[in-house]
Amino acid sequence: MTASDTSFVPKGRPLPQRQPLARVIDSLVFSIVLYSVIVGGIVFLAYSGAQAMGYNWQWYRIPQYFYTVTDDGFQWGEISTGLVKTLTLSATAFALAVLLGLLTALLRLSGLVVCTAVAVGFLELVRNIPLLVLLYVFYYVLGPIFGFDRYWASILCLAVFHAVLISEIFRAGINAVPKGQWEAATSIGMSKAQAYRYIILPQSVRFMLPPMTGEAVHMVKSSAIVSVIAVAELTTIGRNIISDTYMSFEIWFTIAAVYMVVTLILSIGVSFVERRYAVDT
């Protein structure tokens, strides 16, 4: 029975009305008005500020950086190739980070003193170095020593930086599985490796998905930092275009929007996957 069921007459007296002011603030109309005022205000300030400094808006020149159709046919523009580079860079680094993060988490949870020490040492080392410095270390120090180029220096740097954060997600996810699951797996004769693989990790997935999404989004965003060593990804492309055209407002707005679209798609995609793993205990 619902409140809209007309045949239903409650026997109890109705609840006291809320304060008039509270009702206004909670209403949908008020929310929309407030939202519009804030967003409109920001846009107006930005636009009028740009006008005041005599900025020459040239939005019509932006689409060619995504793609062009000329007599030679269809061609991807610079921003599109930069986006692809950003995506492959982030995806490769994320895959490595997940592997390294899992390894670190398992070492840390192994209960063996040496393994725990190695894991904690690695965690503390990476966690206490700024990402930018870590990137310089990989590019200027480890790169020449081990012979990898700027592209792999950035992938490895991002992988190591995020592996530390991901290992904590794994650790929390593994610890969130009740102890009884370990006991049940052990009692049917499973080894530790089998218990992890068939029982514990599949159950940790649902604890780990939300923070992992956050980490993937974070990865795409922090990949922008590799522009300082001139890897030709989205942010570097943006800088290059600006140095050619001086359209800094349009290009930075565009680049920001592209990042936002990518990370939003990522979040929405994962929320679908999450539902698949939503098992109750």
Partner: peptide, 20 residues
């Protein structure tokens, strides 16, 4: 010990079935 555990079944107070 692993072989032994296969010979010995255990039923727990909290069932401990694998929920996934």
């Amino acid at each position: 010990i692993y072989r032994l555990r296969q010979e010995v079944g255990m039923v727990f107070q909290q069932f401990n079935l694998f929920p996934h």
